[in-house]
């Protein structure tokens, strides 16, 4: 079984990574999402002196709860700002697998390569698992690598211990290491579902990217001061994503059946 899954993953990567659009999404988007918060932290750190007058009154009241005791107002302000960027890291596992899965499934449809593939002894589970892993793994690895790069660069741009400790806190770790993979799974299955109904990878990508909406919801809710992303919020988000995953995997496996693919996918 593993041999078949590995073959599919290898095939997908060999094909899909030759696509410039996929490569761009895979390399540049995470880089931008990593550099942006670093730059923001660097410049807010540089302006610490000017921010000496910043008081806790300048930080939204809801946010003060996440700032530790003894943390300066300016550090708290930095955390407030960088907390918005946490959501950028959460977008990586959505956007990358959507791009890969859209190109991989729609690509197979347009070149009619699914039929000979389905005629091999591969099982539907192996094929779906191979395609899902091929799309989700790079996203998860790149997401983790981007976060690792971000963490590694923090001391270099002179953030305080308190800010570093907050960024390496359970909230962020849960977001990157648990919520990220869960979002990747949902994204892959949504992309497969959408791809089964369209013949253009870009359309599949655009529709599947709707999965960003819950993240944007979190972002705007936080910006509006309705919520502050903390461990509780993240745990609830993870719970919701896990439920969504169950539904999406069910949808994906329902749609990814030999007969359905050959007779209904147009």
């Amino acid at each position: 079984m593993m041999k078949h899954i590995k073959t599919i993953v290898g095939k997908e990567w060999a094909e899909v990574f030759k696509n410039r659009m996929v490569l761009f999404t895979l390399i540049f988007m995470p880089l931008i999402f990593t550099i942006l918060p670093l730059a923001m932290l660097y410049f807010t750190g540089q302006g610490m002196d000017e921010m000496a007058s910043v008081t806790t009154a300048d930080v939204p009241a809801e946010f003060l709860s996440v700032c530790g005791e003894g943390m300066g107002a300016n550090e708290c302000m930095q955390i407030y700002v960088v907390n918005q960027f946490l959501l950028l890291f959460m977008m990586i596992p959505v956007i990358i697998p959507v791009t890969i899965a859209a190109y991989s499934v729609v690509g197979e449809k347009t070149t009619h390569s699914l039929e000979p593939l389905l005629a091999t002894p591969i099982t539907t589970f192996e094929l779906l698992a191979g395609k899902s892993l091929a799309a989700a793994l790079p996203a998860i690895i790149v997401g983790w690598a981007a976060f690792g790069l971000f963490l590694g660069a923090l001391p270099l741009i002179g953030v305080t211990r308190a800010v570093f400790a907050y960024i390496a806190s359970p909230t962020w770790l849960l977001a990157i290491f648990v919520a990220g993979p869960l979002m990747a799974i949902a994204a892959v299955n949504l992309a497969i579902f959408i791809s089964s109904r369209v013949n253009d990878p870009r359309t599949a990508e655009q529709i599947s990217a709707l999965l960003i909406i819950p993240i944007l919801g979190l972002l705007f809710a936080q910006l509006a001061g309705v919520i502050v992303i903390n461990v509780m919020v993240m745990m609830s988000f993870i719970g919701g994503m896990a439920l969504l995953d169950v539904g999406m995997v069910y949808l994906g496996t329902t749609i990814f059946q030999r007969e359905t693919i050959l007779t209904r996918w147009k």
Binding site: T111, H112, P116, A119
Partner: peptide
């Protein structure tokens, strides 16, 4: 041999 060859053109 399916009606269209369905090969991976980039490979």
């Amino acid at each position: 041999l399916t009606e269209s060859p369905g090969l991976y053109e980039r490979l």
